[in-house]
Nucleic acid binder design. Structure first.
Lengths: 336, 336
DNA sequence: GTGAAAGCGCTAACAC
DNA sequence: GTGTTAGCGCTTTCAC
């Protein structure tokens, strides 16, 4: 069994032409039962498995879609990916996944590799929303769906979550509980989620006539460590907040670590709401309030959009989904 | 730019033959400088990207390795994968990843797809250690490296961690702290890690002449929920243990959730050590003691072994790596 | 240095 | 129903 058997080997063993074998492999029918049986036997005898390579080459489709995420260690993305894969499998699509580590350069490289491999479409959360570096995809006519972050310089289908609204809800909740000194750990302001969540924060403050205090606005980068440092800074400032809103899950983790180390009592001395659910939310004490997004649904919708793009190559207009996040109030925010 | 340009388009534009273009693409040298320049220009003008499909077909290698893990939501595996990918990238290899959900059936299907796609090798943590269902790979002469769990019915390179020793260390630690009623949440006994960690548990007990009490041995399946239920059962038994050893990280999470809900005081009323590190270990209170494995290193070694197999097709003997885990003692285990 | 040509394994007309 | 054949886009002898 050293070398892989080909369709020709099967044909020979079954004494038919390769065309007939092909028909059987692809269930196209129009083959006499006896013949089919002979072929099926030959296939199993040889342990024949058809080459997807050769097939894709001929058909000009690989039934593969590429997924690009900025940070695979952020649990948000695996959940989205799970949604994508679920739907993809149903439709006979296969996925390949790469993480860019938030680097535009790596992203460009991955796009290139995806094109080389002939992906039928790409679902991407880009590290750089201008999108110039992934224009190659469009040049090649490969459908794209943007998730969580938009692409500015050309039109693609997108599925987003209403970040402004989510952050607004969270901060309003804190305000309604009597907080006025509410800090925010921001995400990068050159990303839509980072910017919009900050906007939601500001919107809530404005609405309740609470002046924006820049010493309560901490710049983070969506990574755990920046949440950690941000919490530290707030703790040691001479202007300690009574509540903190964290712009994403990783930074939430960092914050909680810091609070624990500082013994800054969560829910008592400082209220807390984070954007995105985290695994620990429900079993640390007090349980964490979070803005929760339908991650799997996001993935499912993204695939659906992409699938339609791949199949109705016509002129679909740009489509945009905007899902509404849900505020889950638990114990980490208390009345003041 | 509707249709992707091919090597032929480039050749035409540069007024050379496709053979010459191929030489340039592959940096094979032996092309006059002027010619090369003309070709390079043509390539960038057309936005040409070579088809990995056609290339792989001709070369009979895809520079792709397949990775199969049983549960992608278990953070252990992403970390191993990160190690693999890191090394793979360095060597110009690309990875495709699939999760079987601990299902032999899905695993078989994935193996099939991998073969169809012509992966050059496979790194696998199998859902079924007999390995019968993945024999296809061997039949096709595709190199395999087993990680974390062995393959019984044929020989492959493996990289394992000394599970017996890790569990033994953990349980001994508990014994030395005065515990005698030590419970274990087991993994599936038809997997090596599940079985070996149980063996380590028994070994420690024996060594210190503590009789094995079957009511303290809980069967789990490595999934979070079974840890949760296990802890519940122990709590409500009329034979409550003073310490718990959990056989993997997911079940540890489940246990901690249960303890929290039950208000069964970790570190005070019940000591705890889990196999494998978990993110929350260091910032829940008390901090969790764990048996820690060098996850990234495991991945790196696995790729190295596979790489050698792929390239020295000769008669390498079966190789087996056995890494030693490290006991990290924190606050969740106390003297009784 | 460069080109012509033979495939890699498959699908899809098109014949019979 | 089944076979013949022309590619898909590339790499790689082997000529020149």
């Amino acid at each position: 069994m050293e070398c892989k058997p080909t369709i020709e080997d099967v044909a020979k063993l079954a004494s038919v032409s390769i065309a007939t074998v092909s028909r059987v492999i692809n269930n196209q029918g129009g083959v006499r039962k006896v013949t089919e049986e002979r072929i099926v036997n030959a296939i199993s005898e040889l342990g024949y498995i058809r080459s997807a390579l050769a097939r894709s080459m001929k058909r000009k489709e690989t039934n593969t879609i590429g997924i690009i995420v900025p940070d695979i260690t952020n649990p948000f993305f695996p959940h989205v990916v799970a949604g994508i894969e679920q739907k993809a499998r149903e439709k006979g699509y296969y996925t390949i996944l790469s993480s860019t580590n938030e680097s535009t350069i790596i992203e460009e490289e991955i796009v290139r590799i995806f094109i080389e491999r002939g992906v039928d479409g790409v679902i991407i959360t880009t590290a750089n929303e201008t999108g110039d570096h992934i224009k190659l995809l469009q040049d090649q006519g490969i459908p794209i769906v943007a998730v969580d972050r938009t692409i500015k310089n050309f039109e693609v289908d997108t599925v987003l979550v209403d970040n402004v609204n989510g952050a607004y809800q969270a901060v309003r909740q804190l305000i309604l509980q009597g907080h006025e000194r509410i800090a925010i750990i921001c995400g990068p302001q050159n990303t839509t989620p980072g910017r919009e969540r900050y906007l939601g924060y500001k919107k809530a403050l404005e609405e309740y006539n609470i002046p924006l205090d820049s010493s309560l606005v901490i710049q983070g980068d969506f990574m755990e460590n920046s949440g950690y440092k941000g919490a530290l800074r707030l703790f040691y400032s001479n202007n300690r907040p009574t509540a903190i809103f964290s712009s994403n899950n990783q930074m939430t983790i960092g914050c909680v670590k810091a609070l624990t180390e500082l013994d800054w009592k969560l829910g008592e001395e400082v209220s807390f709401i984070g954007f995105d659910d985290v695994e620990i939310a429900t079993f640390i004490k007090p349980r964490l309030s979070v803005v929760s997004r339908p991650m799997t649904t996001i993935g499912e919708i993204a695939f659906q959009l992409l699938y339609e793009r791949i199949h109705f190559k016509g002129n679909l207009p740009k489509r945009e989904f905007l899902l509404t996040p849900e505020l889950k109030i638990r114990e980490s925010c208390h009345k003041i």
